[in-house]
Design a protein around this nucleic acid. Sequence first.
RNA 1: GGCGGCGUAGCCAAGUGGUAAGGCAGAGGUCUGCAAAACCUUUAUUCAGCGGUUCGAAUCCGCUCGCCGCCUCCA
Length: 480
Amino acid sequence: MLTIYNTLTKKKESFKPLNPPFVGIYVCGPTVYDDPHLGHAKSYVSFDIIVRFLRASGYRVRYVQNITDVGHLLGETNEGEDRILKKAQLEHLEPVEIAQKYERHYFRDMDALNLERPDISSRATGHIPEMIELIQVLLDKGYAYEVHGNIYFEVSTFSEYGKLSGRKVEDMISGTRIDAMSEKRHPADFALWKKADPEHLMQWNSPWGKGFPGWHLECSVMAQKYLGETIDIHGGGLDNQFPHHECEIAQSEAANGKPFVRYFMHNNMVTLNSQKMSKSLGNFITLTDLFDRYGPMTVRFFILQGHYRSPQDFSDTALEAASKGFNKLRDTVINLKKHVDDGYKSEKQVSGQCAVFRTQFFDAMNNDFSTATALSVLFDLSRFANSAMSGDDLESINYALALFEELGEEILGLQFAKQGDRVEDSAEDALMEIIISMRQKVRAEKNWKEADRIRDLLAVKGISILDGVEGSTWKKAVKN
RNA sequence: GGCGGCGUAGCCAAGUGGUAAGGCAGAGGUCUGCAAAACCUUUAUUCAGCGGUUCGAAUCCGCUCGCCGCCUCCA
């Protein structure tokens, strides 16, 4: 039985979707105005695992993620400027070019991390009419008001405002950072629609004049459009809990009179060398930069070693340790693939010790997606598999490989052997066989100097020769 | 100021009432020409500190110290 920590109730709860076996999940996607960074990796890897595990548990999942290509306002008073616009001016490109360029970068990096793409990636700019409709509903029902072409949600009309983040509207009046001098009736009221200056590059017609949508509207609209008025799971980064998700709840529940979300899930934040990583501090590193030093699978593995609700610190020592740990599993899987007979078929029916491992793995994942514990099962499985290979225990070898494929590859999304790896490269294989057999001759002559020289030369090229009792094998150093 | 979180071995990190997973690093061993890999053994009488509840606490409660997040765009 799957239990999920629900941020709405601050408790672990049994997961019961509204209409089983269907599960609707909405995860806040990126604002596409810059390259993806470490924080995106943690967040989207976490929800990728969640989606994969739900599917492995038999649920029919529809996974929706937005692409924010409108851009949020830089500040309450800074009308007309948003981050995409700012970037567009900086790079001398159309806002749409900026959005599409960084959307491509986003998918490029997420693909590298082996994330399954959302079933629906919906762009905010494609849903302006629906947003206008929702605003109209809120106006008609008295939850919103218009001032000079701007529409605001009136927080005081929605009594449950604050139920997600635990904030009280009264407390927010004294908040020093909220501009008390604005045209809003209450400082906590938030914009649904903003009037655009004539020179503003992104603007749309609306019943209230030309403008653009407010910060939180797109998620309410797209979640409802594709998943219905009540969705099973809504995910996102902890930093979005307030105000973003709080405002989504207010908009959606005020408009529909129904619970918006059954389970809210928030992943925790990432730090870099123990420091907060943020765009405003400018110390974030992009995934492209990170992948130059550590492969995407190392990054994915590293994220899985922590818990999605715990903060995670990226450092070189931690990533190097993760790289070695992942390599250990990877070596085991590659060796298993070499050991299985031709009749191998991936099967999910395993017995004996492997069945125990499988149960342990599912127990861990059922407990609010405890990937770190699940990974520890894979290390136990690795030890079991290596022993089985020493003993030529073919049945265990087959079961172990089947488990690695199901648990490691399908559910955790770890690519142990990528395409192009040497297991599938017959030319490279043939060459290495020749080199090894030649070296085997000098070894037979006990010419250790020459044997070591060959080994060292290959090592420089990233190829390791492993001499065993039954001859030598080799492996290529890969950046995971 | 308001709200919330965290502090577990040299490092990373699970565990949230029943007697400390796992990875990396370290030590010893088997194997090996050597090396590597693999396997075996080993590495926290103890979970920031101090009190309390309990038959029993890293896990619950209180206080103290330290660190962090949100309250402004952020995953």
